[in-house]
């Protein structure tokens, strides 16, 4: 058994990737199980910067889940904006006793905010600005 000397855990970018990588090249033998390959691949990927970043953006924007995921994501974005706008409009009306006025205005604004949300999620990512404001 090799025990690592006590080291600060978060000192490097990939503190564990390095150790596992060394460990497996050291104890490598032909015909080793998939586990070692997977780990070396993982370590190599994270070292080369191919970690989770590109896939992350994709699955977060619903791209990794197919049409169902896209539909769910877009629907939730629109509905949540509308819900917030409804709550604000209703609250303002309740406070100022102007029953339908703010509700009408804020439902329209909420619809616009919903479209804005969906645009932010699915906007084509180009240039340095990752999430267009």
């Amino acid at each position: 058994m090799f025990l690592t000397p006590p080291r600060p855990i978060a000192s490097k970018r990939t503190p564990f990737g390095k150790t596992t990588c060394e460990a497996h090249t050291m104890s490598e033998e032909p015909g080793r199980s998939d586990r070692s390959f997977e780990e070396r691949l993982q370590a190599a990927r994270s070292k080369a910067g191919l970690g989770s970043a590109p896939g992350a953006e994709k699955s977060a924007s619903g791209g990794g889940l197919g049409p169902f995921g896209v539909a769910l994501r877009a629907g939730i974005e629109m509905i949540s904006a509308l819900l917030v706008a409804l709550a604000i409009g209703y609250g303002l009306d309740y406070w100022l006793h102007t029953r339908p006025a703010f509700l009408i205005v804020f439902v329209l604004l909420g619809g616009a905010a919903g479209v804005l949300n969906v645009w932010r999620v699915f906007a084509p990512k180009e240039g340095p600005s990752r999430r267009p404001k």
Partner: peptide
């Protein structure tokens, strides 16, 4: 619109 969009984040 931006405020609604911001507040809709926790909801979504």
């Amino acid at each position: 619109i931006e405020v609604i969009s911001y507040l809709s984040r926790p909801v979504s």
